[in-house]
């Protein structure tokens, strides 16, 4: 029976923790994703994700050196610290000019991965140890991990939703925000730091390589049907939750990578919505040619 199967899944404490983590991540990731898409910085999450890998390896190295058990207890804190530093550096470089920001992002991509692999081998680990972080390891979520996820998600939601108008203002038109005396740099760094937190919180669920997909794809879907910024964010959060929980549930029965399953479902949702869009978006009740006096004299 399907009902028994689902009851069995929900009764499994390991699965309970994993589902809760997936739900929180699905809710939080699209919040910051909406701002990144708004300022056309969709790849920022990827850049931060790559940097976070170096952080994971650095945490591992330090944990090893201090003979901590297990060796990777510092991996997540390492990822958080490094991701925040990386995000702030990217933001400061971006502030100085657009072209160099693009190159800086590329350097971070390559440096992050290479640094991670190098450090993990120095720590006596193998690349296999990095796999859990690159592709996610939600099946091993402990109660402690879950608490960290709850706290980080709360921060992301409070900042991302509570400061929505201000963060929107700075992403929508930075020049106008400066001319309004808004603390533009502080707001930009806030977005960068929240993006870094989102990356590290999503790491367990989908892995660093696919973190950005969870931030961006739900927003891409929402954009197809929403007409306001607020709606886009709301719909994206709903889609994030649905794809994360669905994807993870599937892996309870089929031995698939949770992260990859979630992202594939999200992209499938995008494809379906894009195809069905003409049916979903009912023609708006606006006359595209309102009665406005002509501004040229037309000879009769």
């Amino acid at each position: 029976m399907i009902g028994d199967e689902i009851a069995g899944m929900l009764g499994d404490p390991l699965m309970q923790r994993a589902l809760l983590a997936a739900l929180l991540v699905g809710l939080a990731a699209p919040v910051i994703g909406t701002y990144l898409v708004q300022r056309r910085l969709s790849l920022l999450g990827d850049g931060i994700g790559h940097v976070a890998l170096t952080g994971v390896a650095l945490g591992w190295l330090v944990g090893n050196a201090m003979n901590l058990v297990p060796h990777d207890v510092l991996a997540v804190p390492g990822a958080i610290v490094t991701a925040i530093i990386g995000a702030v550096v990217i933001e400061l470089v971006r502030e100085r000019g657009r072209t160099s920001g693009d190159v800086a992002l590329a350097l971070l991509f390559y440096g992050g991965i290479a640094g991670g692999v190098l450090l993990i081998s120095l720590a006596g680990g193998t690349n296999a140890n990095l796999m859990a972080y690159l592709f996610g390891s939600i099946s091993t979520v402990s109660t402690g991990d879950l608490w960290l996820t709850v706290i980080l998600t709360a921060i992301i939601l409070v900042v991302g939703i509570g400061l929505r108008t201000a963060l929107f203002a700075v992403c929508h038109d930075e020049e106008f925000a400066r001319a309004a005396g808004l603390p533009v740099r502080v707001l930009n760094i806030t977005i960068a730091v929240v993006a870094a937190l989102t990356v590290t919180v999503s790491m367990r669920v989908v892995g660093l390589l696919l973190v950005s997909a969870l931030m961006i794809v739900p927003v891409a879907v929402a954009q197809l049907v929403a007409s306001s910024f607020r709606q886009t964010m709301g719909i994206a959060m709903a889609i994030g939750v649905v794809v994360c929980v669905t994807g993870l549930s599937i892996t309870y029965w089929r031995d698939l990578s949770p992260g990859a399953t979630i992202v594939v479902i999200a992209i499938a949702v995008y494809a379906v919505v894009a195809l069905a869009r003409p049916l979903l978006v009912r023609s708006r009740s606006h006359d595209p040619h309102p009665q406005v006096p002509d501004d040229v004299e037309v000879a009769a």
């Binding site: 708004q38 929107f168 929508h172 005396g181 808004l182 306001s228 886009t232």
Partner: peptide, 18 residues
């Protein structure tokens, strides 16, 4: 810009300052 935004949302952002 990138994300769908209503006229009302753009104008609302003008209420923030300092």
């Amino acid at each position: 810009t990138g994300v769908p935004t209503t006229a009302g949302e753009v104008v609302t952002s003008g209420l923030l300052h300092g």
